[in-house]
Amino acid sequence: MEVRTIKVFTTVDNINLHTQVVDMSMTYGQQFGPTYLDGADVTKIKPHNSHEGKTFYVLPNDDTLRVEAFEYYHTTDPSFLGRYMSALNHTKKWKYPQVNGLTSIKWADNNCYLATALLTLQQIELKFNPPALQDAYYRARAGEAANFCALILAYCNKTVGELGDVRETMSYLFQHANLDSCKRVLNVVCKTCGQQQTTLKGVEAVMYMGTLSYEQFKKGVQIPCTCGKQATKYLVQQESPFVMMSAPPAQYELKHGTFTCASEYTGNYQCGHYKHITSKETLYCIDGALLTKSSEYKGPITDVFYKENSYTTTIK
């Protein structure tokens, strides 16, 4: 009895394709271990004539594949690729409408935090270190965002349907971005203890939790000093293409032309909904596939993004 075979390709990165001759009487799992086709788990399936010449994702289970996976995804987590594939199996079914010149995501599976993050990423200057993220990001900007969303979920250790947080998501993504040249110098002034300067680099240099107003941050924000008295913390120097200011959701007025974009969060910790506000020729609110415009805006804002380049204080 002759062994019926077909020729397929296996890959971990969709760049390096490895030619395989597979036995049609055995499952993919018996031949390769966990195997995925377009995100779908085909591990328990036997090869079919229609699979001839198709590319299958496999887990990096030998040295060659491990090197290829690390170079593309910059992670050695053995569960990463499987999590990416199972997320992709959902995100490829989502709709990605162009809204006001940006790629958004039609609401499904509690994905409003991903839509808000995706919209924000198209408006701030950011370059990702893992080629996987950078490639998928370019495709997302062009309207094909399924891979990018699935990668975000995998890097953030999230599953489809789980509630997510924009600030946490951005923080994970910033860790995989090139923020080497970003720098922030802060000064804390206390009447009792004097003053202390701190220099922050990388992710810490672009994120701040405690106030939404970048102007206020430049002037000074009140913080408790270690001595128990009130101290003032203010920005001395900022070198970065953008800054992200966050605070627990509270009524906040966004003035046209003073910011790049913002995240609105309605609801409580267990259950809520994100919308995205962007400042173009007027203010726009993007909620999944829905767009509304207004000249002014007041609502429960939790993150505001500002364009920056270089700032030095005039406070002496």
Rank of each mutant, 00 (worst) to 15 (best):
A140R: 01
R141G: 07
K316L: 15
T292H: 15
S181M: 14
Q134L: 06
Y96M: 03
V304A: 00
A69D: 08
P130N: 05
K93W: 07
T266Y: 08
L121W: 00
I105T: 04
T91A: 06
L88R: 05
I15K: 13
A132E: 00
P224N: 12
M244G: 01
C193S: 03
T278K: 01
P78G: 12
V42M: 12
G143Y: 02
S50C: 08
A117H: 03
T266N: 09
T43P: 04
F56W: 02
V22N: 04
G299C: 01
I124H: 01
C182E: 02
R167G: 02
T19M: 08
L186W: 13
P60E: 07
L88M: 08
C112L: 01
Q123C: 08
N16I: 10
M244E: 00
Q230P: 12
V203M: 09
G228P: 01
W107I: 04
C225R: 02
I315K: 15
T35R: 06
D63H: 08
L290Q: 13
Q20P: 07
Q196R: 12
L59D: 15
V221S: 05
N110W: 04
H176Q: 12
Y274S: 01
N309Q: 12
A231F: 01
K219L: 12
L17V: 08
M207D: 03
K316G: 15
Q30L: 12
F259P: 05
I124Y: 05
H276Y: 07
S50A: 14
T226K: 14
M24W: 08
Q175W: 06
M244L: 06
C182G: 05
G101I: 01
T64Y: 13
H51D: 14
H90V: 12
S86D: 13
Q195N: 14
L186H: 08
T159M: 12
T232S: 07
Y137H: 07
S50P: 07
R4W: 11
D135C: 07
G164K: 04
A87H: 02
Y137L: 12
D109L: 03
L151E: 02
V3F: 14
S181H: 11
Q251L: 13
T232E: 07
A136T: 08
E308F: 07
M207T: 09
M245H: 01
D62G: 08
Y138Q: 14
P130D: 04
T35W: 06
A142W: 14
D62R: 08
D41H: 10
Q197N: 11
A117F: 00
T302D: 00
N89Y: 08
E308C: 09
M245N: 00
T11Y: 06
A231S: 06
E239L: 10
A40F: 12
N100T: 09
A154Y: 00
L283G: 01
T314C: 03
Y113E: 03
T120M: 08
E264S: 08
Q196G: 06
E253P: 07
P60L: 05
G228D: 00
P241V: 00
L133H: 03
K201D: 07
E253M: 07
E2P: 14
T116P: 05
R167A: 05
T103G: 05
Q251Y: 09
N147Y: 09
V3Q: 13
Q20I: 09
Y269R: 15
A40R: 13
T258L: 07
L118P: 03
Q98K: 11
G220M: 01
K127D: 11
H48Q: 15
Y311Q: 15
F305V: 08
K233W: 08
D41M: 10
K92E: 07
A250R: 10
K7V: 10
V3N: 13
D13P: 08
L283R: 00
T19W: 15
Q197H: 07
N268W: 08
E68I: 05
K298V: 14
L88Y: 15
Y208A: 11
S295Y: 15
L114K: 04
T302N: 02
N309M: 10
V189T: 11
Y57C: 09
Q98F: 08
R83Y: 06
E144H: 11
H276F: 15
Q134F: 06
R139Y: 09
T278V: 13
S50R: 12
Y72I: 07
A247P: 02
Y72L: 08
K255W: 06
S263H: 15
M24Y: 10
Y284T: 12
V243R: 01
Q98D: 13
T314A: 12
G53M: 13
K191P: 15
M244P: 02
Y73C: 03
T199L: 07
E71N: 09
Y269A: 15
N268V: 07
C225M: 01
D165C: 15
P60K: 04
V203R: 11
N61M: 13
N178W: 03
G210Q: 03
S181R: 14
E253H: 14
L254T: 00
Y28G: 03
V99L: 14
A231R: 02
Q122C: 06
L119R: 01
D38A: 11
T260V: 14
L290H: 12
D180K: 07
G210E: 02
H276E: 02
G299T: 02
T198E: 14
L291I: 13
V166G: 03
D23E: 10
L119E: 00
I105Q: 05
A250T: 15
T35F: 11
I223M: 10
K275M: 07
G161T: 04
Q122H: 03
C271E: 08
Q98N: 12
N111D: 00
G228S: 03
Q31I: 15
V304E: 01
P249R: 00
G210L: 00
G164D: 05
R141Y: 06
G288E: 00
Q196N: 10
T103F: 09
T278W: 04
Q237L: 14
D303K: 01
N111W: 02
N14A: 14
Y297V: 05
C190H: 00
N16A: 08
L254H: 00
T43V: 08
A136Q: 11
T169E: 01
R184P: 03
L133I: 05
L283Y: 02
D303C: 03
R4T: 12
N100A: 15
R83Q: 08
K298R: 10
N61W: 13
Q175N: 14
V12Q: 08
D38H: 11
S310Q: 14
V58E: 05
N309H: 09
K201H: 11
A150E: 05
V42N: 09
C227H: 00
K275L: 05
K233C: 14
T292P: 02
Y137F: 14
S79G: 13
M244F: 02
V8N: 01
V188W: 06
Q123M: 05
D13R: 06
Y274E: 00
H74C: 07
Y28W: 11
L212A: 04
L291A: 13
Q216M: 11
L102T: 00
I124K: 04
C285W: 00
N89M: 08
